[in-house]
Computed example of a mutant assay.
Amino acid sequence: MFAIYVLIPIVQSIWISFHEWDGLGDKAWIGLGNYIELLDDDTFYTSLKNNFLWLVLYLLAIPGGLAVALFLNQNVMGIRLYKSLFFFPFVISQVVVGLMFTWFYAPDFGLFSALIEKLTGQQIAILADERFVTYGIIVAGLWPQTAYCMILYLTGLNNINPEQVEAARMDGAKGLKLLWHVILPQLAPASFIALVVTVIGSLRSFDLVSIMTAGGPYGSSQILSYFMYEQALSEYGYRMGYGAAIAVVLFLIMMVFITLFIVRMLSQERNS
């Protein structure tokens, strides 16, 4: 099953990337032609830059999720309700998240736009401004991703050794010292999983860009996954070979991070 649904499609995508193909007719071998064309494509470099921004800023979900988890890790009345409310963004569809933030940023009636207008005296169309559009979409993505990291850390906090925490408190550790030297080391497995899913999620973000801007304005919010879809499966010409080349580049970028994560995981297992 893994070979049929994962390995073989990967090999086929790499093979298709060396061809000019519309998805229906005969393939025409062009070698590295698609990759050479990518190097001269300004949209490709815009997509790479935006993917880098996604990667860097998306990592804010990890400390954000940790902060919320520490806040919710209390035995007080109604805490389960608060946990459910904080987890709610991860349960709903990315399409719904995209639509909600599109309305949130809307210049005419959006809450964010109204707030900015009160503070600065003028409206800012976040999703129509090339300077801010990518940051606006990333904020929308951080909302559910922070909720997911929160759940990972809440699970990790439930498995913390209370004896170590109590011993540290008896030795005078409290606040940030207790968090840094006692709690965070025990949350290392949760942090590792949160880092892996956040990095992969940042590189394969597609839904929000598709719903909120479709890569606009003027291609300024393009990322590799949407650029691949646009070239291979949209009205731009069904260039399956060119889309496959973009997919291969994205796959190689992901493989770099996945390899680093696997090496780190194997090293930790050997040390333990």
Rank of each mutant, 00 (worst) to 15 (best):
K118I: 00
L152N: 05
A168L: 04
P89H: 09
G25P: 08
A168F: 01
W54I: 02
M77S: 08
R264T: 05
E269L: 09
F104K: 05
I30Y: 03
D40T: 03
S47K: 04
F90W: 15
F132A: 02
N75D: 15
V6S: 14
N75T: 09
N50T: 07
M228F: 00
A214Y: 13
T155W: 00
G98N: 11
G241D: 08
L224T: 02
Q268D: 13
I36P: 00
L38V: 00
L32Y: 08
F112C: 02
V68W: 06
R169C: 05
F2P: 08
I116R: 11
E163L: 12
F90M: 15
L72M: 04
A140N: 05
L24Q: 12
T46S: 12
I262P: 05
E130K: 14
D171G: 03
I30E: 08
A244Q: 09
L178P: 01
F87G: 06
L53E: 13
Y58G: 06
Y218H: 10
N159Y: 07
K118F: 02
L99H: 07
A147D: 14
E166I: 06
A188M: 09
P89L: 10
T43A: 06
Y218K: 10
D129L: 04
F227I: 00
D40E: 13
S234I: 01
L53V: 08
V209T: 09
M228V: 00
F206S: 02
M228R: 03
M100L: 15
A173W: 05
V139N: 11
Q94P: 09
V263Y: 15
T198Q: 12
C149L: 05
G110W: 02
E117M: 13
F52G: 08
G23F: 12
A114Y: 14
S221I: 06
A232I: 01
Q94E: 10
L203P: 06
I124R: 14
L208D: 00
I151R: 14
V248S: 04
G141V: 03
